[in-house]
Amino acid sequence: MEEDNSANASANAHVVGVKSWIAYFGTLVLAAILFFGLLPLAFMWNEIAAGVVFVVSAIMIGYRLLLLRSVQLYYDDVGVWTYSGILPWKKGLSGVKWRDMDEATFVPGFWSWLTGSYTVRIGHRFTKANEIVLTNIARGKAAVNTLNAYQQDLIRTNVID
């Protein structure tokens, strides 16, 4: 994966993928268990314990929701990039330059088709270790089509080989 924080600031970046509503489902189930299951049990034991459970649960659910919202798949004139993270030490940018990109693919299936949420893979020509794989991307099929079409345009115009 090519790491370059300057690519995130590119003026001609086009976001093609973010997490879909399906990605949030697990966090919402966890929130229901914490707030409607564990919190009432904590209140039966002690109000201080309930306060701790509430604060820890709120922080945990809030962090997970913000982390899901931070995931972006985008492209610019240099390549395809994924950005994620909200804490300064966890923020990150990785990607594949156009010249190194093999192809963009998505994983088809009944549930993906039904929900519009796809696993997207941006392959690297030389190594699998540097590819981008993102799950539960909203309109992932359209994102893949956009990325492959843009790469083909770059090849046709001899911008890349």
Rank of each mutant, 00 (worst) to 15 (best):
N8E: 15
Y75K: 04
M1L: 10
V120I: 15
L38Q: 00
G140W: 06
M60W: 05
V80G: 04
D4M: 12
A138R: 12
L68C: 05
D102K: 10
Q72L: 14
L93F: 12
R64Q: 09
T119C: 02
R99N: 15
K97V: 08
R121P: 03
F126V: 03
G109P: 01
D153T: 12
W98F: 11
G95C: 04
G140R: 03
A129S: 07
G26D: 03
Q72E: 13
K19N: 15
E2Y: 13
T105W: 09
Q152L: 09
V96G: 14
I61C: 01
W21S: 12
H14F: 12
M1C: 14
V15N: 06
I22M: 09
S84Q: 12
T105Y: 11
L73C: 08
S70W: 04
D100Q: 04
V71S: 04
L65A: 10
D76Y: 10
N12Y: 13
F110C: 09
Q152T: 10
I122A: 04
A31M: 06
I137T: 08
V16H: 03
I33F: 07
Y83D: 05
L67A: 11
N158I: 07
G85V: 13
M60P: 01
L154Y: 15
V80S: 06
A42S: 00
K19P: 10
D76H: 11
N158Y: 12
A129L: 07
A49R: 00
W45Q: 00
L87T: 01
V53A: 01
K91L: 05
I48V: 14
L28C: 07
Y83L: 09
D161S: 15
F106Q: 02
M60Y: 05
R69A: 14
I61L: 01
L66Y: 15
L68D: 02
I122Y: 11
N5A: 10
L93G: 05
A138E: 12
I59H: 00
K97Q: 07
T82D: 06
K97H: 11
A138M: 09
Y150Q: 10
A143L: 14
G140D: 08
K141E: 07
Y24D: 03
L134V: 10
A49N: 00
G17Y: 06
N12R: 12
I59L: 06
G92V: 13
S94D: 03
N46K: 01
R99V: 15
T82L: 15
L39Y: 00
F54K: 00
P40T: 01
L68R: 02
S70I: 11
A31D: 01
L67R: 02
D161N: 12
E131C: 09
L114A: 10
T146P: 06
N136V: 14
A49F: 00
T135L: 06
S6C: 10
I155M: 11
A138V: 12
G95D: 04
I33W: 03
